[in-house]
């Protein structure tokens, strides 16, 4: 029965794909271009990737309520950082702050640190300012600011989810080792960003 349904679905997909309908898509400018450049901004920066994944990993490592609190706190505070960048409020050592976020958050995972929840939130929030600032300073020049904002927030969230998904392996002893190993890698990468080796 399932196979018949699958065949029917496949046939419909083939028919639909062969239908000659006008292509109404727009170009890479405007909303589409803004979204793509916003979405790829955190993904193409390895320092951002390392830190975002580390936030998710650490949240999963700490368990509830940190598993949801950290990914909720991060984008809101990151937006505050973006606001500072957009408004031109000076913030020193942006790149250093971003690199340090990978080092520190990676270390937290390696050491299996379990500080009070508010300390974790403040730590993650403090680093989110630097990441948001970097996004914010590059935001106004793009094709569509709204689409850029949507793109970079979604990409950031998805990177958190990747970290959380991997971090859920801590339920098993081998997974715990893997997660702490990932933390070590992130921390090392952070050192690389900090020293300019990466």
């Amino acid at each position: 029965m399932y196979s018949r349904t699958l065949i029917a679905l496949f046939s419909v997909a083939v028919v639909l794909s062969c239908l000659g309908l006008p292509a109404l898509a727009h170009t890479g400018e405007g909303y589409g271009g803004g979204f793509v450049s916003g979405f790829t901004h955190p993904i193409l920066g390895w320092d951002h990737v390392a830190a975002m994944v580390a936030v998710g990993l650490w949240g999963a490592f700490l368990g509830a309520p940190a598993i949801w609190l950290l990914p909720v706190v991060f984008p809101i505070v990151m937006a505050l950082g973006a606001v500072m960048g957009i408004l031109g409020i000076p913030l020193p050592a942006i790149e250093t702050g971003i690199a340090l976020s990978a080092v520190v958050l990676g270390l937290m995972i390696v050491l299996a640190a379990r500080p009070p929840l508010w300390v974790s939130a403040v730590l993650v929030g403090a680093f989110a300012i630097f990441h948001g600032y970097a996004h914010g300073t590059e935001l106004p020049a793009t094709a569509n600011a709204f689409a850029f904002a949507v793109g970079f927030v979604i990409a950031t969230g998805l990177l958190h989810l990747i970290g959380i998904a991997f971090g859920l392996l801590v339920k098993w002893p081998a997974g715990r080792v893997a997660v702490r190993g990932a933390g070590a890698l992130i921390s090392l990468a952070g050192v690389g960003f900090l020293t300019g080796a990466v």
Partner: peptide, 9 residues
């Protein structure tokens, strides 16, 4: 986050 960024812009 999106709303705040747009507000700032």
């Amino acid at each position: 986050a999106i709303s705040l960024v747009m507000f700032a812009l």
